[in-house]
Design a protein around this nucleic acid. Structure first.
Lengths: 253, 253
DNA sequence: CGTTCTTGTCCATATTATGGACAGAACCAG
DNA sequence: CTGGTTCTGTCCATAATATGGACAAGAACG
C-alpha cells in the first residue's frame, strides 16, 4: 500500500527540503545535504537550484548556504494557524510552566524529526533557551525525541533510528546509544537525558499520544542539571505526566 | 538563464501545491487542479497522492477535496516568523486603520498570485471581512492584484495576466477586463474596483515597491460602496499613498 | 436509466532525471 | 608558491523514470 511510485524526483525534493528546514535561518551547505540524504551531488544541486528558481529555497549571499525560502510560509498560510494540538496544550503548558518555573517545550514528531512547536519561559532566573520554536532534530537526539520513540512500537522506533543513523554523528551519538535511551525511557515511563544537547543541562520529557495510541508530541522540561536532582525530578515528572494525560483528553474530545 | 531543466516533476508538483493553497482549508477538487494547471489527470493524480503520502497534502474525508497538509507549516517554522515587510508595515497599518476606520489589507505578490498577509479591522460598524489572512487569488482579480500589476513593467504584467487567463473565469472576469483595469490604475496612481469581489463593496489599493522598483505588496481599503464616495475616496487614497511611501522607506533602510 | 460529472488505474512509450567524470574556486599548511 | 583538501558547479550518454492515452467505475443529475 505505502510505496506509490512514479515520483522519485518529488520525494527527493522533499527530503532535501526537510534537511534544509533543520538548518533554520542559517541554512545548510550543499555538501551536508548530499551527505545526509545519500543522494548524489549533481542531483541535489539540480533539485536545490530548481527550488530556488521556484522561490521555495533561498541561498544566503554571504555563506552560500541553502535555506527554506519565503514561499514556504506563504503556502503555509493556506492552513488555519494554531493547530489543534497547540490549542489543546495551551492551558497545560501555562499551568505546568507556572508550577515548575523552568523552560517548557512542546515538541511534535514530523516524519523522522522532532520539531519544537511551543516554548514557555519560566520564572526561575536561569533558563535553558537554546531550543527555539522551529528547531528540528533527528528523532532520538533530544529527550523529547527519545520519549516519542519510547511511546511507539519498538519495531517502528528501530526503523526510524536506523533511518536517522547518518545524521546522528553530527550530534555525537549513534544508533546503539539512542536505542538504549529509548529502552530506559520505556521502563521509566518518561524520557530523560542527564547530558542535554547543551552542556550542563538536563531534560525530562513525557509523551502525548493521540486517541489511536500513536505518539503525537512530547512535553519537555529543560534546566541546569543541578536544579533537577532526584527529588525534584520526581516532582517535575509528576506534573508533566498529569498534564500530558490532560492534553490527551483534550485531543480526544 | 531562467529555465534550468531536469526537474519537470518538481515544478509540476509545486504548481499543484500553489493551486491547492488557493483552496485554503476547504481544498480543491482534483478536476479543478487539472483544469487550472493544464496537466493531465493521471499526472495530477499521481503527484497529489505522492504528496499525501509525504504529508504535504491532505485529503478531506467528507468532500474528497485536496488541501495543503500540516507538514507545510512545519517546514515554514524553519524561517523567522514575522517577515521584514510585516514588521515594516505594522505602524503604518495601525495608523491608517485608526484614521480610516474601514478594513485594511496588506497583500503581497507571490508568483502569479496575490496573498493577503495582514488584515486590520476598523472601528466602523460595517466591515468587509470576506478576505482573510492567507487568502490567495490570481493576480488581477482583486484591486490589490490590479495595483501590483499596475506597478510593474507593462510587458511583465501582460505575461502574468496571460498565465492566469484560465483561472479568471472562476472569478467572472477575463484578461481584457483585467488589462483595462491595470491601465486605469496606472493612470490614477492607485488600484480601484467599484465592484469588489463581494457584492456591494468597493476597494482602493496602493502599491508598495521595493528599493529596486519591483512591486512588493499592496495596501487596500475595502468598504461598502456607499461609504466610499468621490470625496472620501480622495481622503482615503491620500492616507494610503502617504503610508505606502513610509513603508517603502522602512523597507529600504 | 441514460448522460455527464467526477476519481482512480494500467502500462507501453519516450521523455526525463540521473550520476559518473571533469573542472574550477576557495582555503590551508608547509 | 605548490600540493592537498575541501567545497560548488556543469556536461551528457544512458537508463530509469514519469508520462498520458485508454479504460473503468462510482456519483450526481434529470
Amino acid at each position: 500500500m505505502e510505496p506509490r511510485q512514479g515520483a522519485q524526483a518529488i520525494r527527493r525534493a522533499l527530503a532535501v527540503l526537510r534537511i534544509l528546514a533543520a538548518g533554520r535561518e542559517d541554512g545548510v551547505p550543499l555538501a551536508e545535504v548530499v551527505r545526509t540524504t545519500g543522494l548524489t551531488r549533481p542531483t541535489v544541486h539540480r533539485i536545490v537550484h530548481v527550488l530556488i528558481e521556484e522561490g521555495i529555497v533561498e541561498r544566503h549571499e554571504r555563506t552560500g548556504r541553502y535555506a527554506i525560502g519565503n514561499q514556504v510560509p506563504e503556502l503555509a498560510l493556506a492552513r488555519p494557524r494554531p493547530s489543534r494540538l497547540l490549542i489543546a496544550a495551551n492551558p497545560s503548558l501555562q499551568r505546568a510552566s507556572a508550577a515548575i518555573g523552568d523552560t517548557l517545550f512542546l515538541t511534535v514528531r514530523t516524519g523522522n524529526d522532532t520539531l519544537c512547536v511551543d516554548r514557555r519561559i519560566g520564572v526561575y532566573p536561569i533558563q535553558v533557551l537554546s531550543i527555539e520554536v522551529g528547531a528540528r532534530r533527528p528523532l532520538g537526539v533530544s529527550s523529547a525525541g527519545v520519549a516519542i520513540l519510547a511511546a511507539m512500537p519498538a519495531q517502528e522506533a528501530r526503523k526510524i533510528v536506523a533511518a536517522n543513523e547518518k545524521r546522528f554523528e553530527a550530534y555525537r551519538t549513534d544508533a546503539a546509544t539512542v536505542l538504549g535511551e529509548v529502552t530506559a525511557a520505556r521502563r521509566l515511563g518518561y524520557g530523560m537525558r542527564e547530558i542535554g544537547l547543551v552542556q550542563g543541562t538536563k531534560s525530562i520529557s513525557t509523551w502525548i499520544k493521540t486517541p489511536d495510541g500513536q505518539p503525537a508530541a512530547a512535553m519537555t522540561v529543560s534546566a541546569v542539571r543541578t536544579r533537577l536532582g532526584p527529588r525534584r525530578e520526581q516532582e517535575v515528572t509528576e506534573i508533566l505526566l498529569r498534564e500530558a494525560r490532560i492534553i490527551e483528553q483534550a485531543i480526544g474530545g
